[in-house]
Simulated assay, not measured.
Amino acid sequence: MAEQEAAKEVQPKKSKKILILAIVGGLLVAAIAGGAAWYFGQHSSGHDAKQKEQKKVVKDPVFLTLETFTVNLQPDPEDQYLQTDISVQVEDQAQADLIKLHMPSVRSRILILLSSKKSSELLSVEGKKALTAELIAQLSEPFVAGEKPQLVKAVFFTSFVIQ
């Protein structure tokens, strides 16, 4: 009988070890599966967030076409004039509306800048690019002191004639 009791005591210890190993193994598998699900969930949601961010960044361009400008250029050596059509690309419709609201100021700034140029400055591609940069700077200045500057992205010449 003593042997049978000893055998009974040994068997429960083995089944407890197997049970403990099974529970630990199950928890380990569950932890690995949970970690993998979290990792791939974060990766895909991060990817979705990046795609949404890229979609937000890609906006339709907002252009504002200005009336034709005709100005006398500085003598070089003879009198010439410039006639040009300009389109302005702005950040959003609110910026376009702000520029429309202040159109007399916009036109004055552009006319003063254009009439300060000589034809020799404007004939080359580099001269036109420099003029574009100057126009962006002029149009970006706030209309009212202390206000935020306008968000002018680009200036495009749709016609450019010097005579």
Rank of each mutant, 00 (worst) to 15 (best):
M1A: 15
A2T: 14
A2I: 11
Q4N: 10
A7C: 07
E9G: 09
E9K: 06
I18A: 03
L21D: 12
A22C: 09
L27W: 04
L28E: 01
V29S: 12
A30Y: 14
A30Q: 13
A31V: 11
W38P: 06
Y39N: 09
G41A: 06
Q42Y: 08
H43P: 00
A49P: 02
Q54L: 15
K55N: 05
K55E: 10
K56T: 04
V58P: 03
D60M: 09
F63R: 08
L64N: 10
L66K: 08
T70H: 13
T70R: 13
V71I: 14
V71K: 06
N72L: 05
N72M: 07
Q74D: 01
P75I: 00
D76F: 08
D76L: 01
D79F: 10
D79R: 09
Q80W: 06
Q80P: 06
T84M: 07
D85H: 05
S87E: 13
S87L: 12
V90R: 04
E91N: 07
E91Y: 03
E91T: 00
D92G: 02
D92N: 14
A94S: 13
L98T: 12
K100F: 09
K100D: 14
H102Q: 15
P104Q: 01
S108R: 09
I110E: 02
I110G: 00
L111F: 11
S116M: 06
K117A: 03
K117G: 01
L122H: 07
L123S: 10
G127E: 04
G127C: 02
K128F: 02
K129R: 14
L131G: 01
T132F: 01
A133L: 05
E134P: 05
A137N: 11
S140R: 12
G146E: 11
G146C: 09
K148I: 01
K148Q: 03
Q150A: 12
K153S: 05
F157G: 12
V161I: 15
